[in-house]
Simulated scan of single mutants.
Amino acid sequence: MSAKRPSSPENVSRVYTVSQAERLRDLCGPHHRNLALLETRLKQHGLRAESQGGGIRLDGTEEGVSIAEAALAEFERRLRNGSEPTEMELDGALQAALSPSQSFNALKGLRKPVTAMTRGQARYIELLSQPDNALVFGVGPAGTGKTFLAVATGVAELQAGLRQRLIVTRPAVEAGEKLGFLPGTLEEKVDPYMLPIWDSLRELMGQEQMERRMLRGEIEVAPIAFMRGRTLKNAFVIVDEAQNTTVAQMKMVLTRLGRDSRMVVTGDPDQVDLPGSQASGLKHALKILDHVEGIVTHRLTAADVVRHGLVSRIIDAYAAAGES
């Protein structure tokens, strides 16, 4: 690891003890990469972290060492609950340590627990987990987890028996939703536009269970056009890529909500792909439904974008080279 930092009156040194050698390896990461990430994130506190005996020695300011201890404790808790020992998970643990007043609860009942990586995600999960929130708008840029966390909540409610069905719908703008003009079966026509949803479902519940529940009609993934004329009862409904719905489509799908159902609408109002000058149904709904009782809106930002650790290092390298 890094060279030892010269001691000073302002600095402290403590050892974070880890009882299991395997857990210590997971906390440190390959080639101590996780410790290097911790140092980078807390460099303003002069933090140095190195594996030492049965623990991790932390040197730096009192505040920096305390934050590092809290982050390692949260990271270790996540690992015990089944999370992977990745840099992204450590970043999420650090966010939790930096936000002690914000609850970072995990969504359970899934193939692996899903825990927030940012403060914005933590608040989003809180809102999604409250059954009284019958309609939740989750908006923000790509990479913030707005759709994945919505799907994870829907899967968790399905697994727990709180809902009988999970329905995910999104506009197929590229095909103008005139899917009848495309070759192949309905599944073949729909799949290119629904692939991100299938990927999320496979990750959250596994291929076998996903297929079994689909065959029983408990999971449905379809374009918005297929929602017309229906009442969606006892279901967890997700409207994805909602910025590409028209005003009429948005009104239609919102009014499909039936008894004992919940709906989550996700999208990025700044990335509308509708042809011509058509108004975005998401933008319109956010404006007119702002103060309607039972509807909540959560806005994720660029600060909630979760990237692979390598991407962060690539961005840092370009920044160091003076390139945007």
Rank of each mutant, 00 (worst) to 15 (best):
R14E: 15
K108Q: 14
H284N: 10
D240W: 03
V190K: 00
L201V: 07
F148R: 01
Y193P: 06
A222M: 03
R230E: 10
V65S: 08
S99L: 02
E293H: 11
G53F: 00
D26K: 09
R165V: 04
Y124K: 08
S13F: 09
R77Q: 13
T144V: 10
A172N: 04
P9Y: 01
G143D: 06
L162S: 14
R212L: 14
G180F: 11
E220V: 09
V168L: 08
V237R: 01
E89Q: 11
G140L: 11
G154A: 06
T255F: 09
T144N: 08
V12S: 06
N11F: 14
T246N: 09
S8R: 11
G184Y: 03
G176L: 08
K108F: 10
Q121C: 05
L300M: 10
A134Q: 14
L24I: 09
G294L: 11
G145I: 03
P275S: 12
V239P: 05
A320N: 14
G29F: 07
P9C: 03
H298R: 13
P6H: 04
K189Q: 05
W198F: 11
V221N: 04
L204Y: 00
V136K: 06
G53P: 06
R307L: 04
D270L: 09
M210P: 05
G281I: 01
E10W: 13
G281F: 02
L204I: 01
A175M: 03
G267M: 04
T61L: 03
A175G: 08
G180S: 13
E218D: 14
A96D: 10
A175K: 05
R230S: 11
P9S: 09
V247E: 07
A21W: 08
S324R: 12
E203G: 11
Q95H: 12
V305Q: 09
P85R: 00
R228F: 04
E187V: 01
E157Q: 09
Q243Y: 02
H291G: 05
P30G: 12
F226V: 06
L310M: 13
L27G: 07
A93I: 08
T115P: 06
M117P: 07
E39F: 08
S99V: 03
S83E: 15
A319H: 15
A317W: 07
V264N: 02
T169Y: 00
L127M: 15
V139I: 13
N234D: 15
